[in-house]
Design a protein around this nucleic acid. Structure first.
Lengths: 314, 314
DNA sequence: GGTGATCCTGCTCAGATGAGCATCCGAGCG
DNA sequence: CGCTCGGATGCTCATCTGAGCAGGATCACC
């Protein structure tokens, strides 16, 4: 395609897309046949001169979703558009909304849904509509009550999801991480706790997020880890955590001793599940998102456009 | 349109624009008739959810051009797209290119073209192609030789435009602004100078830019004005200059005494012309551009998208 | 200069789309 | 309870558009 044709294709595109002329009219204006105009427009598209964006908080990027499914082996992928996003909060909100939409449309409806907790999960619970399902029971899959400053966020999340879904919530009454392995083992052998974890293992689907390995982590905020602990984990290669368990870029446990003191479903149990929905958004979580997908921790990923593109670049 | 339809229109738009499905296929996917799909897409467009951009340095914004013609009474308007522009330089280059294109396509071809000088005009001269016209003579319409640091920029501009257009250039051998009114009058009464100005008055078309009233002005750079002079002009309401003459936001001369010492065509002579092409780009020149258009100093405006939108906002 | 390959052009034709219209549905009202 | 009216719905039909194809120009290579 020479420069003349390139320019003509631009002129044609202006008349076609901005002035709503027919290809025939454009042909008359530019002294071309309408077939030539059609071909110029096709070339303009194909060469990327035409960008069509859907500007809406609920807009998704289907081509990227397809690539994620095909190239990264996901069962399903939901990618929200970043077009016109001004703040990280808005991106979080859009992603949470998309996750809520996905859950609502999910068929068959899971009878038992295992959930983690955190900022993202809370957002999702808030975006779900009353009656999003009829009778979904929710069970927490990792510990994390009481120490949280905003008391009961973890519990409130599970309860909200369950209530709006017409079911009940089963909470895991345990800290996320214990200081002594013996305490952790003692807690896990408690009949109630063991029962909840058994229930969690039997869930039809899991919904969880991932945290970045940095000082803004909820584990730091909640007091389970110190900033020094996190620095150490990063030194060992940690890119983030999933259900409280820190992983490196290959999805392997970074610190087995720490992991042994962490209460809840193990990553392998998560991996074995039929339906594991990870909701991960924001540029800070690109690395964890990659580790989660790479190590097949999730079968479904809900994320934002830029994270998705990061996953596809690698 | 309720929320359900809004969401459906977004889903339909995704399938239509990103997945290249037909409206019929979308209808099957979303359980709608194809007519409903067509209406949803029309609404999505009409409500601004669909943005189509033409990404190309030569892309123009025809709808904005039309509005400029209709709402601001211009004979013609050329608006280059700012889509994908990263630097102010690129915007300048795009606008200069558009001006060169406009000149090249101009019919009837002017026999004599009056030009000013400056950064923008120089850029235009560089973007013109050899043989852009067959025999266009160029005449400078305002003074400005010799003091310029990059010696001969003003002259080089006129000469390049003329040479590439197969004609010859007539330079105005005078400074832009003189320190004494008497000197200015003496220069203007010089036979050669008077002859050039007469020739300039008889030009078929004028091509000029405008400068912002700030310290980066070419008049400061060239030594015709001090920064203090400019500050004073701004105090008096100056928004910028056209062919060396400083105007306020209504297009009136700000400092008649200074104006009287300025050599070249007067603004009223410019206003009286059949074809006056102003080329003004960049956010620093929004105010001058507005003054130029408002006071009808130009009949044709070549500018960038954001400047054009600024003109239409007021 | 001949020859084949390649690309481009303008065409036919079928499928996709938008305008306009009759019909239907539900809200509001007597 | 029946009536009217505005808006939505599904249709017909004309127009627009893209796929595929045959003929012709162009070019490299012999």
């Amino acid at each position: 395609m020479d420069e003349i044709d390139e320019l003509l294709s631009i002129r044609a595109a202006e008349l076609y897309y901005e002035e709503n002329k027919t290809q025939d009219e454009i042909g008359q204006a530019l002294r071309l046949t309408r077939w030539k105009v059609g071909r110029l427009l096709a070339q303009a598209k194909q060469r990327g001169f035409i960008r069509i964006e859907i500007l809406h908080p609920r807009a998704r990027r289907l081509p990227i979703e397809r690539r994620l499914r095909d190239e990264r082996g996901l069962t399903d992928a939901i990618v929200v558009s970043s077009a016109g996003v001004v703040s990280a909060e808005e991106l979080q909100a859009r992603t949470a909304q998309a996750a809520a939409d996905y859950l609502t449309a999910l068929r068959p409806v899971p009878r038992t849904l295992g959930v983690s907790w955190g900022r993202t999960l809370f957002d999702i619970s808030q975006h779900l509509r009353n009656g999003w399902a009829a009778g979904v029971n929710v069970v927490q899959i990792n510990g994390g009550v009481s120490l949280n400053r905003r008391a009961g966020t973890a519990a409130a999340t599970a309860v909200a999801i369950a209530q709006k879904g017409g079911g009940s919530a089963t909470l895991l009454p345990s800290p996320a991480i214990l200081e002594q392995l013996s305490t952790k083992e003692a807690i896990e052998s408690d009949r109630v706790v063991a029962g909840v974890i058994d229930l969690a293992r039997s869930a039809d689907a899991y919904l969880f997020s991932a945290g970045a390995a940095d000082h803004s982590s909820v584990h730091v905020e909640s007091g389970y880890l110190s900033t020094a602990d996190v620095d150490l984990l990063v030194q060992k290669g940690a890119v983030g955590d999933v259900v409280g368990r820190y992983i490196d870029s290959d999805g392997n446990i970074v610190d087995p001793a720490l992991d042994a003191r962490t209460v809840g479903l193990t990553l392998d149990e998560l991996r074995a599940s039929q339906l594991a929905i990870a909701v991960i958004a924001g540029s800070a979580k690109h690395a964890v998102a990659d580790a989660v997908v790479r190590s097949r921790l999730c079968s479904v990923l809900v994320t934002d456009e830029s994270t998705a593109l990061h996953l596809l670049d690698g």
